[in-house]
Simulated assay, not measured.
Amino acid sequence: MRIGVVVNPIAGMGGRVGLKGTDGKVDEARARGARERAPGRAVEALSALRAAATDDLTVFTAAGDLGEAECAEAGLDAAVVYRPNDDADSPGDTTAADTRAAVRAFLDEGVDLVFFVGGDGTAVDVAETINDAGSDVPMLGVPAGVKIYSSVFGVTPKDAGRIAATFDRVADREVNDIDEDAYRGGEVHTELKAVVRVPVADAVQSSKQVGGGTVESLAGGFASEADPDVTYVLGPGSTVGAIKRQLGFEPSPLGVDVWRDGEVLVRDGTEAEILAALGDRNEVVVSPIGGQGFIFGRGNHQISPDVIRQSTVTVVASREKLDGVGVLRVDTDDEAVDESLRGWQKVRVGRYEHRLLKVV
């Protein structure tokens, strides 16, 4: 097995600081106190790959934080086949062009898989480079971006690493991306960017579905039971957005809002702003992503492990959305928090009705 590993070190930086993406926003993310997320997830995935791989494994990568450092930390002996430039000493000095150049170098080495760490934008860079080269080499992603609409990622970093080491067949999957500026303005416009070959496994996530069912009765029931002594951390999406309107305010576009006793404490909050607004009793309200089932770790990184640890969690969803989900998923970057969330979760689907769904 010959695997090419490339890491987008800035992927996901905009999540916890409320930017809903990092494209063109790296400096602003850093100014808000954002920290690199992708390198740690890369090490987690590469460690799983190393544990699951046979002795017959050859790894190619790019210099520095584009993969070399993460491979070394995971205990993988990797050959560096691409170096950006002598001045690229920090993650901010690398670009999408470096990702594409690294993938071309991997193809020249005859790899069996391109293993990348990033989000949908990185997936587009990898997929288009493979397709432009006329190659049918498969690709597999470690999810590290803010929003993950493409069906080319492992469900978690560990899943991705195990799949990369053990897959034996591939199938065509879609690479999708959205306009981040429109997304920040509350509009979701997905665009099919490429169709590529991806390893087949249960732990490769589905593409994200947009839209849901009628949620008016659900939202009305929730609002009628709101406790004035509870601080509500209300996640993004149309379902929770309906609850916000029932509580008497217009939701921020695809953002996280904090509300207590008739007052909006935070609009479109960052992790730090949400933490500062928490009270003695806190409740996080989220809805799963249609088609994927994620309640944490996709599109709502502002609701961080520190926020979750200080809160109870309520999950709401339309019946139609749950019919297409099967299980709920979590991926918070904190294994202890993930484990605390796993098990059976009651999901509110109507004014009074609930369903039980398992969190995995």
Rank of each mutant, 00 (worst) to 15 (best):
V126Y: 05
V126N: 04
V126W: 03
A127F: 02
A127D: 02
E128R: 10
T129A: 03
A133K: 05
P138W: 07
P143N: 09
I148S: 04
I148Q: 13
V152A: 00
P157I: 01
D159S: 13
G161C: 02
G161N: 05
T166N: 04
R169F: 06
R173A: 03
E174S: 10
D179V: 09
D179Q: 07
E180Y: 13
G186S: 13
G186Y: 09
E187W: 06
H189D: 15
H189A: 15
T190P: 00
L192D: 10
A194F: 06
R197P: 06
R197N: 10
A201S: 15
D202R: 12
V204N: 07
V204I: 10
S206C: 05
S207L: 10
K208L: 15
Q209N: 14
Q209P: 08
T214I: 14
V215E: 05
E216C: 07
S217H: 14
A219M: 01
G220E: 14
F222N: 00
F222A: 06
F222I: 06
V230A: 03
T231F: 07
T231A: 04
P236K: 06
K244L: 03
Q246S: 14
Q246N: 05
P251V: 01
S252M: 00
L254S: 06
D257N: 02
W259E: 03
